[in-house]
Design a protein around this nucleic acid. Structure first.
Lengths: 218, 218
DNA sequence: GTCAAGATTTTTGTATACAAGAAATTCCAT
DNA sequence: ATGGAATTTCTTGTATACAAAAATCTTGAC
């Protein structure tokens, strides 16, 4: 695969950004990072370019590159966009999904429920992700799938914050069931709406996310 | 702005890719490009990284970076995705669009019609683009807007091929009218469907695109 | 003490040098 | 002549060197 150090470093930096290793506005010092990864500035710079290209950082010419965590507004916009894209995937998938995939969704849901009952948050998280990935794939459009995966990945660190809400996982499971039902029935619009509603952040969810953000900032 | 040569070179290369200056699979020789742009390999390499990041080229480690033009399947997928995203923008815009923006759309359409009558293809193209950009913006979601613009831009060279079809511009104008009507009425689903249909490639449009591609390949 | 202009240091951006892996070529055995 | 191994050449990836712009510090006038 990628034997390039620049890629390895870029992956490491992305992971650091996602796991909160950086704060908004942090400058990514080339020399410090070079020492830290024990390489020259060259691969560091290429890695930073990748971060900038993926929107995780911003480059100001002759000034450096800075971490750019989305603020509340942009975060809401990203979640709304994700909800819409999931809706699109759902509508297309309703017309294209295979019987095997429907069974996969059922299986993922079963494992999800089991994880909820066992209080296994990580397990729930993993299976939930699997569930959504299957839907992206079943939209039958490789390009759309990649876009969905990209945004999904980008929102990963923030989605985690959502799960804290009391009873959220139970409600989420009920929504999963409804989604599968719509997909199985081939009802495109219903599937789209169910997925939009499932992913969208409204009402209580909105306030929860905001307060989580405040907590994380402290 | 960006005084970085790497960015200037990246822009130039992107433009070259879009205007058909490269064929699929072409290797982007660092040394040749360095001579061509009269710089060292360093800024060339950074520019190439940007092309790779935006999906215009592919990098094979230790082998180089190669132009990667989308094939028929991927192109269809990209157009379908664009249609869906436009649909989403339309649905959101129907709920959020301002009166001023509606007038802008009318104005753009009028200029579009004038261009059609004058046989001014470039003018039509420009105003058509404007029309769509207004809708992206009126979706009221900056992130979604950027994504829409990105994909729109990526498809630009291929969209041009579509216009050749006899009477296509007239039909397109009628669709524009219907879209504005739906937006003005605030009918979200109707706006979404109108935009999806307007952008989607189906029936004759599909065959036209395929034959255009074949022609361009020769 | 404050402010500003000049000097100094840092840091980015680019060029060049070097190392290592891939491709091309040569050369030999059959 | 052909196939394949060894060598050479070429290219990418990384390190280092240098130039120019920005940031910081110093110094001096008020």
């Amino acid at each position: 695969m990628s034997q390039r150090r620049a890629d390895i470093i870029a992956d490491a930096l992305e992971e650091l950004v996602f796991t909160g290793g950086f704060n908004d506005g942090d400058r990514l010092d080339e020399i410090r990072l070079a020492r830290q990864f024990d390489v020259s500035r060259t691969p560091i710079r290429e890695a930073l370019q990748r971060l900038v290209a993926s929107g995780l950082a911003e480059q100001i010419p002759r000034r450096g590159v800075f971490i750019r965590q989305p603020g509340p507004v942009e975060l809401m916009e990203m979640f709304e966009t994700m909800a819409e894209i999931e809706g699109v995937c759902g509508r297309l998938a309703a017309q294209r999904i295979s019987e095997t995939a429907l069974q996969d969704l059922d299986a993922a849901n079963a494992r999800c429920t089991a994880a909820v009952e066992a209080g296994d948050t990580d397990g729930y998280y993993r299976e939930n992700e699997q569930f959504h990935h299957v839907i992206y794939h079943q939209a039958g459009n490789g390009f759309l799938e990649q876009e969905a995966l990209r945004l999904h990945r980008r929102l990963k660190p923030f989605r985690r914050l959502q799960l804290r809400l009391r009873g959220r996982m139970q409600q989420s499971m009920a929504e999963h069931e409804a989604i599968v039902a719509a997909l199985r029935a081939g009802e495109a619009e219903r599937a789209a709406e169910a997925l939009r509603g499932h992913v969208a952040i409204q009402g209580e969810k909105f306030h929860l996310l905001m307060s989580s953000l405040r907590d994380a900032a402290e």
